[in-house]
């Protein structure tokens, strides 16, 4: 540890509903080393400077999706972002944009979870199989159709990035639509019809205006903009062919 200790200023957005009328920034001076993440900076604040600072975290390795926040105005996982990138000018951490703040850096996930549940984010088997019949087989090509979309960790960074969700919270949003596609594109799944009704609405795929910032901020390399665009094509084809498809007009 030959590193001489450096000090960085972290501004934290505070909101304590019992005392603050509106969120305010509070500044802390944090000693850090080059291997420290922004999350570790916050943990230092909580352990040594101010135990009242509240934030969510769990795994520290970009897999739980708990520690998303705005870092200098950009949605990022604080465990995957290093303090050294902001030295010497310092950084500002705020609660994720577009979501109601519960306390300090903690936002309400209620809207996201309700939407996630509504698209049935699990495989609805095409045909019921008994244990004796064995597993559902899938070729690598079939797996490739959905694999990248299955990397979503529900961190909601894409919701903080999406200007459409910011303008109209009824929009289903990038993450949930990408997961809708993840299950619909799975060869073992038979739930497409149940999910697509949501996708074909104004609040579904059509709420997206192809800004693409969701895909840029995703810490897991998921491309929600791509999932939505593929489905716009399917949705448009279905819109015009439903009248000549048996049973299509009812959908």
């Amino acid at each position: 540890m030959a590193d001489t200790e450096k000090i960085i200023e972290i501004q934290v957005l505070r909101y304590r509903p019992e005392q603050d009328k509106e969120p305010v920034l509070q500044s802390y001076k944090v000693p850090f080393t080059d291997d420290m993440s922004v999350l570790q900076g916050l943990q230092y604040i909580k352990d040594y400077l101010d135990e009242t600072v509240s934030f969510r975290w769990s795994c520290r390795m970009a897999i739980c999706g708990s520690c998303g926040m705005m870092i200098d105005g950009k949605p990022k996982l604080s465990c995957k972002t290093f303090l050294r990138e902001y030295y010497p000018q310092g950084l500002r951490v705020e609660a994720l944009a577009h979501m109601p703040i519960e306390r300090d850096l903690i936002v309400s996930v209620e809207d996201f979870v309700t939407k996630l549940e509504s698209i049935k984010p699990y495989i609805i088997p095409k045909e019921p199989r008994t244990l004796e019949q064995g597993e559902y087989l899938q070729t690598p090509q079939q797996r490739d159709m959905y694999e990248q979309f299955s990397s979503c960790i529900n961190c909601m960074l894409c919701y903080a990035a999406c200007p459409q969700y910011g303008l109209n919270p009824k929009f289903t949003g990038p993450g949930v639509l990408a997961l809708l596609h993840r299950y619909n594109a799975d060869s073992r799944d038979g739930g497409q019809a149940e999910r697509l009704g949501l996708g074909y609405a104004d609040e579904g795929f059509w709420g997206c205006t192809a800004v693409g910032y969701c895909s840029e901020v995703c810490p897991k390399g998921v491309d929600p903009a791509n999932a939505i665009n593929q489905n716009k094509m399917n949705s448009a084809i279905n819109y015009f062919t439903r009248f000549v498809t048996p049973g299509g007009a009812d959908k």
């Binding site: 609405a201 104004d202 609040e203 059509w206 819109y239 959908k251």
Partner: peptide, 15 residues
Amino acid sequence: MKRSNEPIFWSLFGA
């Protein structure tokens, strides 16, 4: 949810 009429405009836009 109600089906969107956006495909009409989106198809013309795409074409």
